[in-house]
Design a protein around this nucleic acid. Structure first.
Lengths: 198, 198
DNA sequence: TTCATTTCTTACCATACATCAATGTACCAA
DNA sequence: TTGGTACATTGATGTATGGTAAGAAATGAA
């Protein structure tokens, strides 16, 4: 079966039937990129949502003084995209590249439109994804507004225990909005207090 | 005419016709709250989107050590809500109260549903609002990740020149994620360098 | 007006986190 | 094995922002 994870995902989460799946995936393409390769660069209009079949992606911006800020990670069964760029047809501010060799399923607007037409549960699920995205961003803003580096890190490993080990530490630091050195010190402090992740 | 701003807004932005407007607003209620009064408290499920006819609202969370973090302001012609709470039917983490005496139009799920049914342009506009919300939150995360207090403040007064004068300074500080004292110092520093906000 | 309350400013010191530079460690390639 | 590259740790020091406390200024109520 083509796109095994994606198939399971659509059926279990978005309520797509076996039959609908075959109808939908006829036009679907996938793409495999090596570690370090780009799926989107700043200035390009984001044409797809990428469903991660296997591997690990990140999206990030680069500030005017050259600092990377990681916006999001996406491992298996997650979507990665720049929604704003795709929706408003604007050049993206972000880069998307692969942290590991990664296979993605390319989802374009046509797919979404077609799937929404033939399945109302897909349409609802898609709306739910949007709402979830907002909820997630709001929590992140809230943490960035008030919480210390340590609390933000603890929150990260609670939310993404798997990523904690797959993602290089300096990228986690970037996601948290601190330097790699600071994260190293936070971890040292936690270890001293006998905290072990997991 | 009932809800003058809301009428103009629906017609100009959401493509609602005069006739549709009358059909829709028959069931619509408004509410006026004094300065300091609440429209939503933590723990309640948010049942409405509030369209601000006149006045000024804020939404905020209170951390475990009692600190307020302002999530959003809404003045005339803006919506205020806790989307996540409303959509997922979950108790809200946030408070919404009035910074000035404020009149809001109460929008519930029924209104959205009805309006979406009778007007496809309304449905599209509503989706656009969602997407805009995401874009806005993402920019804010990006600023919080990397930018100094000064840059965040300059960005604020550029984005919300009107609010800069209507909102007490300590609330702007809270929105920016710094203390009122720090904001005062940032402003002093800017003044020294001859910067005057509009 | 007067008094009280809230907001803003300022000064001093404390602290979290950044920066810089050196060293350590793991992994990969030749 | 060797060396190289990327990543992580550590120490010394710098800087932005926080905390505290006091007073000034604005606001609001009596």
């Amino acid at each position: 079966m083509k796109f095994e994870n994606f198939a399971t995902y659509l059926k279990e989460k978005a309520g797509i039937t076996e039959e609908q799946y075959h109808q939908l995936t006829e036009v679907l393409r996938s793409k495999t990129v090596d570690k370090g390769q780009f799926l989107l660069k700043k200035g390009e209009v984001c044409q797809h949502s990428f469903f991660v079949e296997k591997g690990l992606l990140r999206s990030y911006s680069i500030s005017d003084i050259g600092k990377e800020h990681i916006i999001q990670f996406a491992s298996e069964n997650w979507f990665m995209s720049d929604r704003s760029s795709a929706y408003f047809n604007e050049p993206s501010d972000f880069f998307i590249d692969a942290i590991e060799e990664t296979t993605v399923v390319l989802i374009d607007q046509n797919f979404i439109k077609l799937a929404s037409e033939i399945s109302s549960s897909f349409r609802e699920y898609n709306e739910k994804l949007l709402q979830n995205h907002i909820r997630h961003l709001q929590k992140r803003v809230n943490l960035l507004l008030g919480a210390s580096a340590e609390i933000r890190y603890l929150n990260f490993i609670k939310l993404y225990p798997d990523l904690t080990f797959r993602v290089p530490q300096w990228m986690i630091a970037s996601y948290l909005g601190i330097t790699p050195e600071s994260l190293s010190r936070v971890r040292k402090e936690l270890a001293k207090r006998h905290f072990k992740p997991q």
